[in-house]
């Protein structure tokens, strides 16, 4: 699987990350490495296999529609770097 520099750049933007040139190279090398080891990616034997997203067969639990206490406002904002009580401020949305 050949992956272009642009694809890596796009992926890092999609993850809202900026990679230094040496980090990009490191990632390219690692990606090559893992794809070499992942021989099964080329295998057509997997085509009809169902994908598993949960390790064990499990049934979700459901909750009744009953209110639980919310956080006090100060607590809710206590970790927020941009808190402007009672809001959280963010920089302008449009570039």
């Amino acid at each position: 699987m050949e992956i272009s520099r642009e694809e890596f750049m796009q992926a890092s933007w999609d993850a809202r990350l900026e990679l230094m040139p040496e980090e990009l190279e490191g990632l390219e090398k690692q990606t090559k490495n893992i794809f070499e080891q992942a021989t099964f990616l080329q295998s057509s034997a997997l085509d009809d296999v169902e994908a598993t997203y949960f390790p064990l067969a499990q049934k979700n639990t459901v909750r009744e529609d009953l209110a639980a206490p919310s956080l006090p406002l100060e607590t809710a904002l206590s970790n927020a770097p941009g808190a402007e009580s009672p809001y959280i401020q963010v920089p302008k949305i449009v570039e």
Binding site: W13, A15, R16, L17, E18, N79, A80, P81, G82, I88, V90, P91, K92, I93, V94, E95
Partner: peptide, 23 residues
């Protein structure tokens, strides 16, 4: 993402703030 908790590095707009904070 630097909004409700964690490191925030200011940027000129929202998506840049995200990228700087995470980077």
């Amino acid at each position: 993402d630097g909004v409700r908790f964690g490191l925030r590095v200011e940027g000129s707009h929202l998506q840049e703030m995200y990228r700087k904070s995470r980077t």
